[in-house]
Each structure stands twice: as C-alpha cells, then as structure tokens.
Amino acid sequence: MSDLKQELKEKIITQLNLEDIAIEEIADNDPLFGDGLGLDSIDALELIVMLDKDYGIKLTDPKEGKKIFESIEIMANYIAAHRTK
C-alpha cells in the first residue's frame, strides 16, 4: 500500500504539473482539494482519466470523485479495492 501511495503522489505531481510541490510535502491524509494541495475542477477530471488509464477504474458519476479524491490515503484504498490493472 505504501508503494501505491508513493506512486500516486508522483503521478499527481507530474500529471497535474504541481511544479513547486515535492513528494515529501504531501502527507497521506492531506486534503487534495481546497486548503490542501489546492487542486481545481480540471484536476479532478484529470484524476478521473488517470484512474481509468492507469488502474482500469471507470467512474461513471463524477460526484464519486469527491469522496475518492479526498486524500492520498482514501484514494489508495479505493484503487487497491477496485483496480482491474
């Protein structure tokens, strides 16, 4: 699980172009949106595409993302339970 969390942090920084943020600055329970990493609605859509492309998880309802993308911890748990690749 810790490997998956590390992988997610790397992907989020790279794919969402978070130029000034280092992996070690993202705690597992930090909120990804709002006061945390400050991600926006386009980032949320990118994360939905990432789940599909990299882990074979299709979110049919974008509202599901609100809970799944709350933190790295929650995201990693969801991916581990639902991944098809």
């Binding site: 969402l16 172009n17 386009i42 980032d43 859509l45 990118e46 595409v49 599909d52 492309k53």
Partner: peptide, 9 residues
C-alpha cells in the same frame, strides 16, 4: 482513448 481535460481546455 484518454483525452486530457487539462489539455482540452
């Protein structure tokens, strides 16, 4: 087929 929303905008 994985269009990027961040590019599309």
């Amino acid at each position: 087929y994985f269009p990027s929303p961040a590019i599309f905008v």
